[in-house]
């Protein structure tokens, strides 16, 4: 597919998004936010974009991505606390843990479809929650894993103090976000990505064309879980804390609602959804004790009135 004039709005949109992300630390305080909130938006956006690789572009409904997010969180936290006080080592271990778990569980579930797949992913996610919850003396159980923090990174010639400067940490996260997003975008443009779209549109026909559908779905699942795991490690670094609730099934639902809210047929949709969700949650939880009700109501309203998501609606207006 050659790019033509019909694609220009897409380029403009991407340029605006990158500009906004690059300049975020300079304006977020003026609009009432703070840098850590911006970082959280990035982390959640990475997780939601990664989920959407599977959900929106392969058409496979996973409701258990919190497991791999949480494995990233605990992988990073446990490594930095007990093994090696190095940020990058923590991230590597976190991502690796998520990948290994996803690869094994993926083999068990990859031939399941539709609601069955959703249910199994939800249920499997809970294993890791219970491990984190019960293995008190290592994981801190219900209280979470605290008393550790991300470490400044020493390159030899330069030192990146991500611990004390929130702005530096923001750009640190933005770097990983950019790399991950670029990889996912490139994969989606490749023949492999086109095959995933074909699976989404018509699995049976794709299978008849000789595509090993199960293997493609497994790969897509693995890619998706890898980047969700990466987001998890960044989330742990952001908070200097590992919370068992990052492994709980509620978190999986949050990722899905972000993708749906932004528009799961658009590559940038999950970013928009994550931004809206994170800001809203931050606002509501300072206003009221009953933020769960508001979040729940929010879910219901999104499903009833914005099933196409923000970008889905905009796209419909622009391209009738």
């Amino acid at each position: 597919m050659k790019d033509g004039p019909q694609d220009y709005p897409k380029y403009v949109g991407a340029a605006v998004i990158w500009l906004a992300l690059l300049s975020m630390p300079f304006w977020i305080n003026r609009v009432g936010g703070y840098t850590q909130l911006g970082t959280e938006v990035l982390v959640m956006a990475l997780a939601a974009t990664a989920l959407n690789f599977l959900l929106g572009f392969t058409g496979v409904l996973s409701f258990g991505h919190a497991a791999y997010f949480g494995l990233g969180v605990y992988g990073a936290g446990l490594t930095i606390k007990y093994l090696l006080p190095s940020t990058l080592a923590g991230m590597a271990v976190g991502v690796l843990t998520a990948v290994v778990a996803a690869a094994i569980i993926g083999l068990l579930i990859v031939h399941l479809r539709g609601i069955y797949f959703a249910m199994v992913t939800i249920a499997f996610g809970q294993v890791f929650y219970f491990i984190a919850f019960r293995w008190n003396n290592v994981t801190g159980g219900d209280d979470g894993l605290s008393n550790w923090s991300r470490q400044p990174i020493d390159f030899g010639f330069a030192r990146l103090d991500i611990l004390h400067s929130p702005v530096t940490f923001y750009y640190f996260v933005l770097f990983f976000f950019a790399v991950a997003v670029a990889i996912m975008a490139a994969l989606l443009r490749s023949p492999f990505g086109r095959t995933l779209l074909a699976i989404r549109e018509n699995e049976r026909r794709t299978r008849f064309l000789g595509v090993p559908v199960d293997r493609h779905i497994w790969l897509s699942w693995l890619i998706s879980c890898t980047f969700v795991g990466l987001a998890g490690t960044l989330y742990a670094l952001l908070n200097n804390f590992a919370d068992p609730h990052t492994l709980y099934w509620e978190q999986s639902g949050v990722f899905v609602i972000m993708a749906v809210l932004g528009g799961m047929r658009s590559f940038w949709g999950p970013l928009i959804g994550a931004a809206i969700y994170v800001v809203l949650q931050d606002y509501v939880s300072t206003m009221t004790q009953n933020w769960m009700s508001f979040i729940g109501l929010f879910f219901v309203l999104v499903v009833l009135f914005f099933p196409r998501g923000v970008l889905g609606i905009i796209r419909r207006k622009v391209v009738p």
């Binding site: 899905v256 979040i295 109501l297 879910f299």
Partner: peptide
């Protein structure tokens, strides 16, 4: 799924 999920919260 998402709707009943929200309902569960509420």
């Amino acid at each position: 799924l998402l709707l009943t999920f929200g309902l569960a919260f509420m």
